[in-house]
Amino acid sequence: KYTMPDLDQEENTCFPAAASNIIYWFGENGYPNLLPALVTGENRHRRLFTKLLVHCNVSYRLGTKFEVMTTGLKNFFKEQGYNDVKVSYRGFGGAVFTGPEWFEKNGQDNVGFILCIDYVKKTGEREYSAAESLGHCISLLTYSDNVAVILDPAHTADERGRYTFRFQPVRNVRLTDSNGTYPLPLVYELP
């Protein structure tokens, strides 16, 4: 997915920005009906972003709710005429956590990932505390053996762009937030 374009986000629109980046890549690589019609003087990528903004009920002030991400994407794909797209979420707030082997599927031309990240502080061995954050979404460019190259749609004034990182899955941890301390089956630690 290395040739993915990089639209930057505005305000709290990281999810539709990250989604539009990977979906635009699919549009240019075998699925042309994902791309809006070319209209002189308009930016096609920006028009795709706006469609996703509407489908996923994104608020510039509040961002995107987890529970509408997958259904919003599915409805978008149906509207473009692709009825057989599988969109699945695994992770925090969902039923199933997953090991990093799931990301190996990114090597297939018809599979892409949007990573939903949060910022927390390591407070001890397998102990973390949650930071006050809305969370963030990024796209996966390449993945192999716990090394990922990602595309961050951050605000133009921040640090939008490509980053390489190695992450380490850590299983059976405890997370403390304002509601208390509870177990999590899996987190991915970044350096």
Binding site: T70, V111, Y128
Partner: peptide, 16 residues
């Protein structure tokens, strides 16, 4: 540190 809290996978129909 950042921690991945989840991921969304998009699987398009296979290309012919």
């Amino acid at each position: 540190a950042a921690i991945l809290t989840g991921a969304i996978c998009i699987e398009m129909p296979p290309l012919a």
